[in-house]
Nucleic acid binder design. Structure first.
Lengths: 111, 111
DNA sequence: AACATTAATCGTAATATTGCAATATAATAA
DNA sequence: TTATTATATTGCAATATTACGATTAATGTT
């Protein structure tokens, strides 16, 4: 069916997968890396930077904005985007909790 | 179209998004958390643990195995799965590089 | 006002993902 | 050999995602 019943899973599991889903497209990774690199806000040059059409970039930006990782300010006819630092830090904390679980060494069958 | 041309992006961007895509489903997050929790290898009880049908779980395990995060050993009629520690560590390194980028404070428009 | 610029939204086609019933495969037990 | 048990694979339907042309909305410029 393709229907994921979110109530089947814990809030943490849904949160992690929702974050990961946003990182699950190279264009969005590229957008975020660019926002980090230029160290300041960015307007429409993402369309030139990444080789995708303007509506596509706009759609990816919407996804990133929806989950709160970026925010945008309107300045004239263009919109400046940047990383939402507080939310980025919070997101990192959630992911680290999952990624940095202890790796015990008591393999029984997978040695 | 839905076609992502991977050659449009850097190897790093594709690697990050491929890893993230695997975490982008709560069932796979749940499987990994369970593998961590029981601290040892696991066989078929995932189907009972998570509320999905056996073929569905098997499919998710295949995704996790494909990217190398888990490995499985056949023991009798059942298969034991566990985290591939080396690959998990390598994956973490890749993600940390991306997640832990410096957050400068020179916002111009997004203050 | 008329035009230009920039970004968002709509509509739609192509593709990918998810879930499961049915079936296949493999190992063991009787 | 014939069940039995456990997992994988196949096939398919439902849904989600991605990409982009066309259009719209908002602002700025002349």
């Amino acid at each position: 069916m393709g229907l994921t019943k979110s109530e089947m899973f814990t809030e943490e599991q849904n949160e992690i997968s929702n974050i990961a889903k946003v990182f699950g497209h190279p264009a969005r990774v590229a957008i975020l890396q660019h926002l980090f690199k230029i160290d300041t806000c960015i307007c429409g040059d993402l369309v030139n930077e990444i080789g995708l059409a303007q509506p596509t970039i706009s759609q990816h930006l919407k996804e990133l904005k929806k989950i709160g990782l970026i925010k945008g300010n309107i300045t004239g006819t263009s919109v400046c985007y940047c990383i939402d630092k507080a939310n980025w830090t919070a997101m990192k904390k959630t992911l680290h909790l999952f990624l940095d679980q202890d790796l015990q060494d008591n393999d029984i069958c997978c040695s």
